[in-house]
Design a protein around this nucleic acid. Structure first.
Lengths: 190, 190
DNA sequence: CTACGTCGTAACGGTTGCGTTCCGGCGTGC
DNA sequence: GCACGCCGGAACGCAACCGTTACGACGTAG
């Protein structure tokens, strides 16, 4: 019976508030103000701040990103890099993710939710990316998907979300090149 | 005339409080309680929370990490990896850095301070690491220190501070191997 | 031994947010 | 057309923290 447009307005307000002030300073009252709704409408849906944020964030984060399959490892990698770059440059990602990550270190419930939403998904991407490459014979059978994903997403996340330095097309190209070289060389070395 | 032991207790309390509740929820009163001092003692030293945190954090972060010079690029790299791993596993680093990074996205003063404390230092490490390798002829003259540092610290930070997955010696070894391959291959490719 | 400055404690008024409750209004389903 | 349930708004008592002030105790410098 809860009105859908109200729920939507609240979800939206939570994401914006989260990006603007962070979880620590997010208040129910501010969310209600921003959404243009009464506090009552919020407490009718969730029982407290933690539950509300977790439900909304995991819903947003859980939306599956289409896994790449361009036909070649180089193509898959390049596509993944571009998708990740775009995603990490989004305001939600670059502000909310570090904030919730820091929060997760203190709150097991947040940690658990984020792991489900982010890490399992990331692992699926890694498995598919490397699996496809192995099937095509582009990487050896013992290539480590976990390590591969760390090597791909790590530098991008570091640069975009931590150092907050802009990423040029040229930079992205060179990074892709280096990572490709690493994964191929790392395999032949073993 | 300010008593040094009091100042020290406050600095300590701020770091602990920062790690435990984050910047957003850090309160002067809690710091005073934890340090076992009066609020007066704090306000006598800093005028507000932001100034206090910035001064203390930049002091801690500014302590120079000795730059590696083991005589070979492989050795330098391995040493750097180990130092970074250890540093990122420290409670202060793994909790405070993501928190302040998220905060920096909203507050230019924090961003500026952190860039000075972290990024410039990181750049110096990269320049020295790559510079030494170039001088030894282990990397070509046009090797990009910036890219190199991203590739080295990115995966570690991702794994330790974001994914919060433990890093085994074996994993570290393989990562070092891959990064070495990447930097050498990337050079020969150009 | 005196005077000064720092110390902790306690209190101040003011703000913000919590989670709850009551209200009158409005729209929908029956 | 009537009752029900959601809606926003307003207020509640409670708690935390802000930044400031006043106070008496202590310790040290001169």
């Amino acid at each position: 019976m809860l009105r859908g447009d109200i729920t939507k307005a609240i979800r939206n307000a939570v994401m914006n508030e989260l990006a603007q002030v962070g979880y620590g300073r997010l208040s129910i009252e501010a969310v209600a103000r921003r959404a243009g709704v009464g506090k009552t409408a919020i407490y009718r849906r969730w029982s407290n701040k933690l539950e509300m944020v977790l439900e909304i964030v995991s819903d947003v984060a859980g939306r599956a990103v289409p896994l790449p399959d361009t036909g070649s490892f180089a193509g898959d990698l390049q596509l993944l890099m571009m998708i990740a770059t775009k995603a990490l440059q989004h305001r939600y990602a670059s502000q909310i993710i570090p904030d919730l990550m820091a929060e997760a270190a203190r709150n097991p419930k947040i940690a658990e939710t984020l792991q489900k939403a982010l890490r399992s998904h990331q692992q699926a991407v890694g498995d598919k990316l490397v699996g496809q490459a192995v099937a095509r014979g582009e990487l050896p059978a013992d290539a480590d998907p976990e390590l591969a994903v760390d090597l791909i997403l790590g530098p991008l996340y570091w640069r975009l979300a931590v150092a907050r330095t802009p990423v040029s097309d040229d930079y992205l190209e060179r990074l892709t090149e280096l990572v490709t070289a690493a994964l191929q060389a790392g395999s032949s070395a073993r």
